[in-house]
């Protein structure tokens, strides 16, 4: 080999190494998505708008650090987002997540993203595979639009389906996260780990720029106005009223918190598919199930443990994800939603 050939070969290899980006795997997806998409993808794209900060201007937490429950300086009434995955409990204080919106975490050997949108009051968990999610700085129906760092596809959090980029029309795999209070979570999971303020960023974690949940004030007050336009307006409730939302292949279902608390167990048939929603008095949230065999569940016979709800008939149910959301946002994403307000209302 002559010297100049050797030189060119070395140069080519060096250039190839320089321009070969490490390929990150896409997040694990569902094609077609298992959740309803009630507007066209094009309509969603047209409804996207800037939320103010730029891409990653609201920085996700990519190296979260945790502390033991007894070291946390939280009040019992403080809102938290809890996760129980493969026998391990972690909790993410709302007053930290309001500044970051996404935590790219690992729990029980799985790569997970815990996401929270303050403007729609929604906390959802997504499996992220070998990539991470970041905050795009865009909003649709006031809801956080995430992007994945492998393909730069854009995913509205509530929708859980990409509306732009190479993965458009693909759904994400969700897992359950809990919107509850520190006191309730600690009672259910005394061994929980708590996200610390050592996020790698400097923020005023004692102050929520939108208002307060303890007590409820500012943007979070039920009657306060939304900030950004929505694709569908529904004034049946004040905009920030919290509903418990469940989605299935045939549609979406919203349940008022009052009816869930009062009735304990709610059965709803959506297009011949039966759902059973069980109120968890400890965490003050719902557990949603598909109930194909129409098993009758009695609230008085149920027990709530760290792993979830147990009791007669529960084993025959299939768990479905559910989450709390501000009514205006739920109705904007799911204009045809079934609304359950209680038995006395026809």
């Amino acid at each position: 080999m002559t010297p100049h050939i050797a030189r060119y070969s070395t140069l080519s290899i060096a250039l190839a190494m320089l321009f070969t980006q490490p390929t990150l795997a896409s997040p694990p997806g569902q094609h077609p998505p298992q959740v309803p998409v009630m507007h066209s993808i094009e309509a969603f794209r047209e409804a996207v708008r800037s939320g103010g900060p730029g891409k990653d201007g609201i920085p996700s937490i990519d190296r979260p650090r945790f502390q033991a429950a007894d070291q946390a300086t939280l009040s019992d009434g403080d809102k938290v987002i809890g996760v129980y995955h493969r026998g391990q409990a972690r909790v993410y204080p709302q007053r930290i997540l309001v500044w970051h919106e996404i935590v790219n975490d690992e729990l029980g050997g799985d790569a997970l993203s815990i996401t929270y949108c303050p403007l729609t009051g929604t906390a959802l968990g997504f499996k992220r595979g070998d990539t991470e999610f970041g905050v795009s700085g865009k909003l649709v129906n006031s809801n956080l639009v995430m992007y994945d760092r492998a393909t730069d596809s854009e995913w509205p959090q509530i929708l859980g389906v990409a509306i732009d980029g190479p993965l458009a029309n693909q759904g994400l795999e969700e897992f359950r996260v809990f919107w509850t209070t520190w006191g309730a979570w600690k009672a259910r999971h005394p061994e929980t780990e708590v996200l610390t303020e050592q996020t790698g960023f400097v923020r005023n974690y004692r102050r929520d720029p939108y208002g307060s949940y303890n007590p409820v004030t500012g943007y979070y007050a039920p009657d306060s106005r939304r900030l950004f336009p929505v694709m569908q307006r529904d004034d049946r409730f004040p905009p920030k009223t919290v509903v418990f939302g469940v989605r299935g292949p045939e549609g979406a279902l919203a349940i008022t918190r009052e009816s869930l608390r009062n009735e304990g167990v709610i059965d709803v048939v959506l297009d011949e598919r039966r759902y059973t929603i069980i109120h968890d008095p400890g965490l003050d949230t719902g557990w949603a199930f598909h109930n194909p065999e129409a098993v009758e569940i009695q609230a008085a016979e149920l027990t709530f443990t760290a792993a979830g709800v147990t009791g007669p008939g529960i084993a025959s149910l299939e768990a479905v994800n559910g989450f709390e959301a501000m009514w205006f946002a739920w109705a904007a994403f799911y204009p045809d939603t079934y609304l359950y307000e209680g038995q006395e209302v026809p």
Binding site: R49, G51, P209, L227, P229
Partner: peptide, 22 residues
């Protein structure tokens, strides 16, 4: 730069429109 936040305090619903000119 933080027009939306100020408008939240004032309770005005036009914050979304102002973001574009910020």
């Amino acid at each position: 730069c933080c027009a939306p936040l100020i408008l939240i305090w004032l309770g005005l619903p036009i914050a979304g429109a102002l973001v574009g000119v910020a």
